[in-house]
Amino acid sequence: MKARVTVTLKSGVLDPQGKAIEGALRSLGVDGVTSVRQGKVFDIELAGGDKAGAEAALKQAAEKLLANMVIENYRVEVLG
């Protein structure tokens, strides 16, 4: 089973890397970008076909390691 965990910064947390990317896009002449927030994507493969079990395992993975809940949020998608 394939799944994706997306980790993003909580709103309000300053994102200096996002700011730098935003500046680089502007200097490349990409128009209309008003804000960039960067994050991480984890593509994960799991054994077995239990969707609810996979979601629970991924939630645990995100909270124990993939995200730091002080500044980050996460989203789990089981892609099947």
Partner: peptide, 16 residues
């Protein structure tokens, strides 16, 4: 900080 023994965490330096 990551282990939870201290609160908060260390972000990228403000000046990058």
């Amino acid at each position: 900080c990551e282990s939870g023994l201290l609160p908060g965490l260390l972000m990228r330096n403000a000046g990058l």
